[in-house]
């Protein structure tokens, strides 16, 4: 197996997961379970390609894509923050709606998938980092990714700073840990939750852009393939901490990369390798939960 290729793909596959994870962390810390990440990611992937195709301008496509995802974020927040709806159901609704809308619009447009190869040059979007790309072996792994992949890794640090060093980060954690405390000193709890969800929406838009526009210049209907849910698993494993959750995201990215690279030479059974990431996530999630619950002597389950 080509290890350089494997690690390059791990970073490449990890990037959208990292972006989703970083965006989802704030909602997780603010005690809103944002499982709408999956749908927002798909929406991001779809709208970025669609509007790039319609406007023939990548930047405009990206901008409109982020705006549309913000609207989705607001829809989701209205449902579960303002109207106090069940976030799991609202989140799944957003996911199903995203899939349905993409399928519906593709039908209306009369296309099987969206292809913007003529506008976007995938190879041209890859950024070669000078000096680093000269390092043998490692250069080929770290260098040559599209912009959003780099953004995702830089975002780990940025999100850590926001979470632990700013007022907003403190408020997010306060809202999640003791809502009453936040209310009693006049923190607008709902506003904090809205912002937390919206950060998730923007991040998953970026992840979607990375997935469709940047890497393939193509949108197909099932391309999110559970990345949003994988991100939720990583958030659970890392308790919403930016650094730790990102590490899990990279591990899950590696699992996907393994699946891709193993299946190349596996023939008809290659599909079986595609299950590796899912089983691995279940396994890691189980191990993390078992470790967390190792000392638990209280019977029963928490009210959720």
């Amino acid at each position: 197996m080509d290890y350089q290729r494997l690690l390059y793909d791990a970073i490449s596959c990890g990037a959208p997961i990292i972006l989703c994870v970083l965006g989802g962390n704030f909602a997780h810390k603010a005690n809103v379970l944002n499982i709408a990440l999956e749908g927002m990611l798909l929406m991001g992937a779809f709208t970025s390609v669609l509007f790039t195709m319609l406007t023939k301008n990548i930047l405009l496509g990206i901008l409109i894509c982020i705006l549309i995802n913000l609207i989705w974020g607001i829809v989701f927040s209205v449902m579960c923050v303002t109207k106090k709806g069940n976030p799991i159901i609202a989140g799944l609704a957003v996911n199903m709606l995203a899939t349905a809308i993409c399928a519906f619009l593709l039908k209306v447009l009369g296309m099987a998938n969206l292809n913007v190869n003529s506008i976007v040059n995938v190879a041209g979007l890859k950024i070669q980092i000078p000096v680093i790309n000269q390092i043998p072996f490692i250069g080929g792994i770290i260098s040559g990714h599209p912009l959003m992949t780099y953004v995702s890794f830089i975002a780990i640090f940025v999100m850590w700073v926001i979470m632990y060093k700013t007022k907003f980060g403190v408020y997010v954690r306060v809202v999640g840990e003791n809502e009453d405390a936040a209310v009693s000193v006049g923190i607008n709890v709902n506003r904090i939750r809205y912002i937390a969800v919206l950060i998730g929406a923007v991040c998953s838009a970026l992840a979607g852009i990375n997935l469709s526009l940047e890497k393939m210049a193509l949108f197909t209907n099932d391309m999110s393939a559970g990345i949003g849910f994988i991100a939720i698993a990583a958030i659970f494993c890392g308790s919403g901490r930016p650094g730790l959750t990102s590490i899990y995201a990279i591990i899950f990215g590696l699992a996907q990369s393994l699946a891709i690279n193993l299946s190349i030479s596996a023939g008809a059974y290659s599909g079986l390798f595609n299950t590796i990431p899912y089983f691995m996530i279940v396994f890691i999630l189980a191990v993390v939960s078992i470790i967390k619950m190792k000392n638990n002597r209280v019977r029963g389950f928490k009210n959720e």
Partner: peptide
């Protein structure tokens, strides 16, 4: 037995099952 979030597990297994059956 281990308080593993059932939602994530079932969602992941859905993808895995669909893939296996496809193969």
């Amino acid at each position: 037995y281990f308080h593993v979030n059932e939602m994530v597990v079932t969602l992941m297994l859905n993808y895995a099952i669909a893939k296996i059956l496809q193969v």
